[in-house]
């Protein structure tokens, strides 16, 4: 398949503000200190005093992971058709329109190609502010195409999850995206192309029970909520309060379901190191401009 591509250089002023409340100062919910907005942007939305990780937008995530903050976005124009004609207290179409307006994105994931410490990669970053980062048909399709692209180019795949799970308003079609993406990851797995799953706060439901848990490495940010059933559902089932730290990154590390917890400020370096350890090398033969990635076939050492 041929693709027309657009190179996007994100403009900081319009897209960096999303996760932190308006105003010049932000109070850290963890240590209570007042943080200056611009300082927080400089520390990748991590509190410099207590290392509390604020939630990040998809574009901020791509900026922090990809060299020079540059990437080529794929399938940006995919938009849900509301396949169920779903209405609860208001029409899903209206919710979609409001989210598109608010985020400037068509749905809850951005899939892009770029370089991470020189290594060509495909990255999918979920956008929590788009209906809770929920996965419907567009998220499913974009990520599946991203997996297929990674396979075709033999480029390592990185998916940054930040999602409440499958999107109810697209019914069982949302559920099936779990199977669709996992099937594509099966092919990637057997082809020996690395897939690194990054789990951020929160990663729950059908996202956890599909691609987020299928990484060759599952890497979590500190203190992220990661689970299948939501804490409230579990509390209703067992009729008791859950222990502190239940379903947090540290709990999952202890139970053996994630490989490491990495501070966001170390994340890019860690991913670069892991990919080199898995035999992928910086591709210095070609210029760093993303346009050059068109039709790339990367031949990693040892694959």
């Amino acid at each position: 398949m041929a693709w027309f591509k657009k190179t996007r250089k994100p403009i900081e002023t319009t897209e960096k503000v999303s996760r932190v409340p308006e105003g010049l100062w932000v109070k850290c919910p963890s240590c209570g200190r007042a943080l200056y907005h611009k300082d927080l942007a400089a520390t990748l939305q991590v509190c410099p005093h207590c290392a509390h990780h604020f939630r990040m937008s998809a574009t901020e995530r791509l900026s922090m992971l990809l060299d020079d903050g540059r990437w080529t976005e794929h399938d940006a124009g995919l938009r849900s058709l509301d396949p169920l004609g779903f209405t609860d207290t208001k029409p899903y179409r209206d919710r979609l329109a409001a989210s598109i307006e608010k985020t400037g994105q068509q749905d809850a994931v951005i899939v892009a190609s770029g370089r991470l410490e020189g290594i060509p990669v495909v990255v999918a970053a979920m956008e929590y502010s788009f209906i809770g980062g929920s996965m419907g048909v567009v998220v499913g399709e974009k990520i599946t195409r991203g997996v297929e692209r990674a396979l075709a180019e033999r480029a390592p795949l990185i998916i940054v999850s930040c999602s409440g799970g499958a999107r109810m308003m697209e019914g069982a079609l949302s559920l099936m995206q779990m199977a669709k993406i996992s099937a594509a990851l099966g092919r990637l797995d057997r082809a020996g192309v690395p897939y690194l799953s990054i789990l951020t706060d929160p990663t729950t439901g059908g996202v956890t029970a599909s691609f987020a848990m299928l990484g060759d490495l599952n890497i979590a940010e500190p203190k992220a909520l990661i689970g299948f059933a939501g804490p409230r559902v579990i509390e209703q089932t067992i009729r008791q309060k859950l222990p502190d730290g239940f379903q947090r990154s540290e709990f999952l590390l202890e139970k053996g379901f994630i490989d490491m917890i990495v501070d966001r400020r170390e994340l890019k370096a860690t991913l670069g190191r892991v990919l080199r350890l898995f035999g992928h090398r910086p591709d210095r033969a070609r210029p760093a401009a993303p346009e050059a990635a068109t039709g790339d076939v990367d031949a990693p050492a040892g694959a």
Partner: peptide, 28 residues
């Protein structure tokens, strides 16, 4: 089997491709 699940939520049925202001790539 792959194609079966791959087609769940198809273009035209479940989603469409719109032109995004300022670009975005399109299948060609």
């Amino acid at each position: 089997r792959y194609a079966k699940f791959r087609s769940m939520g198809r273009e035209g049925q479940a989603f469409t491709t719109v032109t995004v202001a300022g670009g975005g790539d399109q299948a060609g």
